[in-house]
């Protein structure tokens, strides 16, 4: 079975996505959970570029635009997320996510 470049890129991004997901699910350190989420976002960006580059009838700049905006949003997310980490740390003196359960119903 031969895989097209597009499919290879998609496999790469899928693998990266799952690495991020497993990291986010497995680690108790909030910073790492956040970084796992960042990886997942990056995997999505890779998909945009892959489709833009190899996909059917690539449009001039749409994919690139998407990624640029996505990176901007990811940066905002990282800033807010890490601020939240610091807030959690100040609150409970550690950053174990499973202890941040004050929203429990």
């Amino acid at each position: 079975m031969s895989l097209s470049p597009l499919q290879l890129c998609l496999l790469f991004s899928s693998a990266l996505f799952c690495v991020g997901l497993i990291g986010a699910l497995a680690r108790s350190n909030t910073i790492l959970v956040l970084l796992g989420v960042e990886l997942m976002l990056n995997a999505a960006n890779i998909n945009f570029i892959a489709f833009w580059r190899f996909g059917p009838a690539p449009s001039p700049a749409t994919g690139v635009m998407f990624v640029v905006f996505s990176i901007a949003v990811a940066a905002a997310e990282a800033a807010v997320g890490l601020a939240l980490v610091i807030a959690i740390y100040r609150h409970q003196k550690n950053i174990r996510l499973q202890e941040a359960v004050r929203l429990k119903g």
Partner: peptide, 30 residues
């Protein structure tokens, strides 16, 4: 490699440059 130079530089600037610093600060602060 995919030919999106601008995005590559954006990725470098934002992630390798900025987010990583924020992460390191967060790690050190906690």
């Amino acid at each position: 490699w995919a030919g999106a130079e601008f995005v590559a530089f954006a990725q470098l600037l934002v992630y390798v440059g900025a987010v990583s610093m924020v992460v390191l600060f967060a790690v050190l602060l906690t």
